[in-house]
């Protein structure tokens, strides 16, 4: 038994390195997805202190909107790349409207409330989006318009370590686009006037207000940015599988990612996402069979939990000094 747990998996790893690389790659790819969802969380948490449960559903909703617009266009006989990008633009527009609505209807009246109330309010947003989305787009899974958006398909097979490692092109594209987006966000936060205002708001709402930063405007921007992140996530994820409401549960995986990375750290979200993605896949592949499989459903949380006990503030969070 002990042999099966502590030795056998590693023997397997060494004996079949190509399988290990494949597993690692798959872990990294799902890690990128987690990281992207977590990134949306972090953006909103940083700027408004709101733990946005709706991020997961925003991913689904934005992807559905995109596909929905494109389907409408093609029913009018307007399809192809131009139509796809017009749909993309319109979907982004919808996310902007959503951001404004959320700010106006939900955040503004609740600004002084404790975190848990705002957290609950984002649950409300989630339910509204689910209900609205299902009524408008229907519940059945849909195909992402990957080709029309110039996203590659198929796979690259690399011969290495005595075997074939197969990399999906879409995954490579996802990794590249995710990195670009992270760099873009980092520049936006560090170099622009709005970015500075964002960081000020993150530190203290009241102090930011007192120097003339408009909270309402900042919130719209942040929720819009999170909406765009959601849209990109939705496209990437939709291109790998279908667009459906099942992603809701995947979005919860962003929680352990955030815990690992620290709630306010953008690099933390990325590193945390990759760790969770890789850890999960390795665990499932090498140790899962011992427990009867399916341990992917909880392994991420347990990894995060164990990690938390050692470092309650997360990888990149500041050390907590309690003061009285």
């Amino acid at each position: 038994m002990l042999y099966n747990i502590f030795i056998d998996p590693f023997v397997q790893m060494v004996q079949m390195p190509d399988l290990l690389v494949q597993t690692l790659w798959e872990g990294l790819v799902s890690g990128v997805l987690y990281a992207l969802i977590a990134l949306g969380f972090v953006l909103i948490f940083k700027a408004s202190g709101v733990f946005n449960f709706a991020q997961g559903i925003m991913v689904v909703f934005s992807a559905l909107t995109l596909v929905g617009f494109y389907a409408k266009f093609s029913s009018w006989g307007f399809s192809g790349h131009a139509a796809a990008f017009l749909a993309l633009l319109l979907a982004a527009g919808v996310m902007l409207v959503l951001a404004m609505l959320v700010e106006r209807v939900v955040l503004r009246p609740l600004v002084t409330q404790p975190d848990i109330i705002l957290f609950m309010a984002t649950f409300g947003i989630t339910y509204v989006l689910i209900g609205f989305g299902e009524i408008v787009f229907g519940g059945d899974p849909k195909q992402m318009i990957a080709n029309e958006l110039f996203l590659p398909s198929g796979s690259v097979d690399i011969e290495m370590l005595g075997g074939l490692v197969s990399l999906q092109k879409i995954d490579i594209a996802a990794a590249v686009i995710a990195s670009l987006m992270i760099v873009g966000l980092a520049l936006f936060f560090q170099k622009t006037r709005i970015g500075r205002a964002l960081r000020a708001v993150a530190d203290s709402h009241k102090a930011a207000l007192s120097v003339g930063i408009s909270l309402n405007q900042i919130w719209v921007i942040v929720w819009f940015a999170a909406g765009l992140v959601a849209l990109v996530t939705g496209i990437m994820w939709g291109a790998r599988s279908d667009v459906s409401f099942a992603l809701e549960i995947v979005a919860l995986k962003a929680l352990p990612v955030l815990v690992l990375g620290g709630f306010t750290s953008v690099p933390g979200a990325i590193v945390g996402g990759l760790i969770i993605g890789v850890g999960e896949k390795l665990g499932e592949f090498y140790w899962g069979p011992l427990l009867g499989g399916g341990i992917e459903s909880w392994l991420a949380y347990v990894i995060a939990l164990v990690f938390l006990l050692y470092r309650p503030q997360g990888l990149f969070g500041d050390k907590i000094i309690e003061r009285i």
């Binding site: 939900v106 989006l129 689910i130």
Partner: peptide
């Protein structure tokens, strides 16, 4: 039902 329950949650919180 989803839509209304969600809206009501927000409404009651406000």
């Amino acid at each position: 039902t989803y839509l209304i329950v969600g809206a009501l949650i927000i409404f009651f919180l406000i």
